[in-house]
Amino acid sequence: MFDLQTYHKAGSVEEAIALLAANPDSRLLAGGTDILIKLRHGKSGFAELIDIHGLAELRSIRKDAEENILIGSGTTFTDIIESKLLQRSIPMLCDAAQSVGGPQIRNMATIGGNICNGVTSADSAPGLFGLNALLQIHGPDGLREVPVAEFYLGPGKVDLRRGDVLVAFKITPENYAGSFGYYYKYAMRDAMDIATIGCAVSLKTAASKVSDYRIAFGVAGPTPIRCPKTEQAVLGRELSAELFDCIAEVVIGDVNPRTSWRAAKDFRLNIIQELAKRATHKALQRALHPAGQKEGETI
């Protein structure tokens, strides 16, 4: 039994913005897979809900005229897994979506909710960090675009202001075209678990060298993070066995995991090093053996 006080179903983003403005203590409800847990635990601040679940304008994956890929905030993880466009262009996001919860959760949970929830373990975050995703946010004062790395303000804190609705994630072509990525989730279980560490790598190769390299982690700090030192160290290097040793060594300087009863810092560091290597390896495999990359399809 939930202590629900009010519930409104929004018919459009516009109506959601108006409802948020009219109900100052209210919150958006997308898939509800984070909110309903909090409600069940009796946390305050979740009792007045504005439901945007299933709004068609928030639920699409498409490419626009400038070749930007736009993922609606209300897109579920199942939608992402099944998207031909993403399978071909950014399979790393499908890896991440596939790693979330179980089938029932993936049918309900949205990528927008995942990011707006603000936790460091969000499985879609490392990939979006590597892609320099831009968050399109509609608020009472119109539309703004916020880079995902700037959206996270602290643990559980994101740059959403009163009346804001996250509408879509925009990924520009220079951030995905010709790039190959992989998301590696390490958890205690192979389903229904939060990441102990999540690692997303995307890279480009040219003439046996790494010509673009991005690596991002979840749970390696209080928010998801990119690893600038590692990225710099790897850029331009030959593809070789030493490359992996270098990644494992340098990455330690980029991360800041903590000891909690869930896992010790030393253990997390060990996993971070290993995941950095394995995710890079997997991304390289995709780069060297691209499987049927076709452009221009939408779901």
């Binding site: 179980g102 205690m188 279980r189 192979d190 389903a191 229904m192 678990d193 939060i194 869930r262």
Partner: peptide, 10 residues
């Protein structure tokens, strides 16, 4: 969540 009872995937 935190008691890691295995799932069918495990």
């Amino acid at each position: 969540l935190d008691y890691k009872f295995p799932t069918f995937m495990d």
